[in-house]
Structure formats: C-alpha cells, structure tokens
C-alpha cells in the first residue's frame, strides 16, 4: 500500500512537472523590439509590392469582392480544414473591428511570431510560419501600406475548431516544432541572385509552401517534401507539385512559369483554377523581375515526386 501511494505520488509529480513544463514551453514569445525599431518607419509604396506578394487580400478581402473592393479587408472568408473552420478576421484599419489600433510592433509580432497584441497565440492558418522569414523592413513597409487602406467596420465570427486544436496555448508547442525564420532550401555559395530573391518571395511573403507542401498529422509542413504538392486542405482535389520531380513542372521552362504567373495560362493553354486564381492575380501585379525570380527558384529546388496519393483509377 505505501508503495502504491509512492507510485501515485510520483505520477502526480511527473504530471505536475509536465503541466508546468508544457505551460512554460508553450508561452508566446515576441520579437525583439530593437529589431522592429531598426526597420524604420516603412514606405507605403514599397509595401504595396509586399501586400501583393503576401496575398493578404486572397483571404482577408470581403469574399466575392472585385477590383478596388479587394482592398477592403473585412475578412469573413471561411477556411474549412480538417482541424475545423477558420474565419479570416477583419484586418482593415478600423480601430475596433480591424487592426487600426495596432502599432508597428503589434503588427510585427503577429507577422513574425504569430502573437496577437494581447499576447495570445494566433492560429497558423494565418501563414506566419512563412511570414516569419520576412525581413523586418518589409514588415514595416507593409504596415505603412496597410495604413493607407480603408477602415471598414464589422467583426467576423470566431473559428470553430475541434479538440485539441481549440486550445490556443497548444499552438506554443506547435511553434517550437515548426516556427523558424531559417530558409527551407539551402543553396551553395555563388547561387544566382535571382534564385535567392525567389527563395525569399516563395518561402517568405508568398507562403507558397502553405498549400503546395504536404503537412504531417500535427499540421506542420513536411520540409522533406517541400513544394511537392499536397491534398487540398479545403475540400476535394489536390494542390499541384511545383518541383521538377515526377508529376511536377519539370517540363516547364522558367519562361513558362513566369508566363503562368503573369497570364494564368499553362504551357499547353490550360488556365489557372481554384484557389490559385486569386494568387495568380496577385502575382500578375508583381514586377517581371519578381516573377522571374520565383521561376528561377522553383527550377533550382530539389525535385520530389508528388506529395499527394495517386488518383484512384476510374471504375467504370
């Protein structure tokens, strides 16, 4: 009996240590304020490029809006994923319902660390796992640009997630595993500048890997199959393999990729579809140099076979 008591005590102590350790390990961390201060006050004109590269409007514009309406960042788009339904929030300049009251520091914490001004973890449906690789100066420029956009009222509804994903604190542990500002693909010295510039756009603001890379059970990107394509997080179908591996775009030239990003047409004149339609519209607003850099990077990364299971053969 005393032995049993001892054992129970040991288990309780261990559990207690586990809870405390888990609590400490999951604590939200913010970015060093000095890093943000060094980024300067930001240039709105430059920030527009980052806004387009980052595809902010794709999720945060009012669903169904067009042209200028894409700059009204009311949120409201529902992302139906295996973890539950995420609702893109209002990130317009409204100081109550949007982010109009956020300081540059608040904004940088959200973009680079996935932490809200009140110190809570944000869900990685907001792709800060990619944005974490962005340069602080670009964050400052983006902040300046977004301040020029309209304030539109209207709070969006909350996410509806299944256990255990509804426990925000748990995201802290997820971040320990998957949040890094290091580049995914490392290149040898003397790699062409365009490839490095493309890496920044693809792995950072462009957050291409969020959809084009398969995820593991915990929702982390599987970097051993970087950009190999994945089952669509939302609904049916797949997101294509954009490496040069089997099933990918190895037959596309750099010019083909650049042209696709600009016009939405594949080399055999099929067109862009699905969620990529909005992405391509953003890519079309970048400079030809930026699109060429993205292409150069995609042709330079390690090839992988498709990151999604083969299609079921037709039964009829």
């Amino acid at each position: 009996m005393p032995r049993l008591k001892k054992l129970a005590g040991a288990i309780l102590t261990l559990a207690g240590v586990g809870v405390v350790a888990g609590w400490m390990l999951s604590a939200p961390t913010k970015i060093d304020p000095q890093v943000i201060a060094a980024a300067g006050s930001g240039d709105a004109a430059k920030g527009e490029r980052i806004f387009n590269a980052g595809g902010c409007a794709s999720c945060h514009a009012k669903p169904g809006s067009k042209d200028e309406g894409r700059l009204e960042l009311t949120g409201g788009l529902a992302l139906k994923t295996p973890f539950g339904i995420f609702i893109a929030p209002n990130i317009s300049q409204d100081s109550n319902d949007g982010i109009g009251a956020w300081s540059l520091e608040d904004f940088a914490h959200a973009m680079l660390k996935g932490v809200s001004p009140s110190g809570e973890h944000l869900y990685p449906a907001f792709p800060y796992a990619s944005y974490a690789r962005m340069k602080p100066a670009d964050i400052a420029d983006l902040y300046a640009f977004m301040q020029t956009l309209p304030a539109v009222g209207g709070k969006t509804g909350g996410h509806s997630l299944a256990f255990p994903f509804n426990i925000r604190r748990g995201i802290g542990l997820w971040k320990r595993l998957y949040l890094s500002n290091e580049p995914v693909v490392t290149f040898v010295e003397a790699t062409p500048e365009a490839v490095i510039a493309g890496r920044y756009l693809v792995e950072g603001p462009g957050h291409c890997g969020e959809c084009h890379t398969p995820r593991n059970f915990a929702g982390g990107s599987d970097k051993t199959r970087w950009l190999a394509g994945a089952p669509a997080a939302e609904g049916e179908g797949i997101v294509p393999n954009i490496t040069s591996g089997e099933g990918g775009i190895g037959e596309w030239s750099e010019g083909d990729i650049t042209n696709y990003l600009e016009t939405g047409f594949t080399p055999d004149f099929d067109s862009v579809g699905g969620a990529m339609v909005e992405v391509q519209k953003n890519m079309a607003k970048l400079t030809p140099e930026d699109r060429a850099a993205i292409s150069a990077y995609l042709k330079a990364i390690p090839p992988h076979p498709n990151g999604y299971p083969p299609r079921k053969q037709a039964t009829n």
Partner: peptide
C-alpha cells in the same frame, strides 16, 4: 476572353493528381 477561363475554373473545376 482569357479572363473567363480562370473565372470558371476557380469555382467549377477541381484539380486532381
């Protein structure tokens, strides 16, 4: 003409492997 392609494929087509 081309803008119609992506408009339709955005909603009415699913990319498959």
């Amino acid at each position: 003409i081309g803008s119609n392609c992506s408009t339709c494929h955005q909603t009415f087509r699913i990319k498959k492997g």
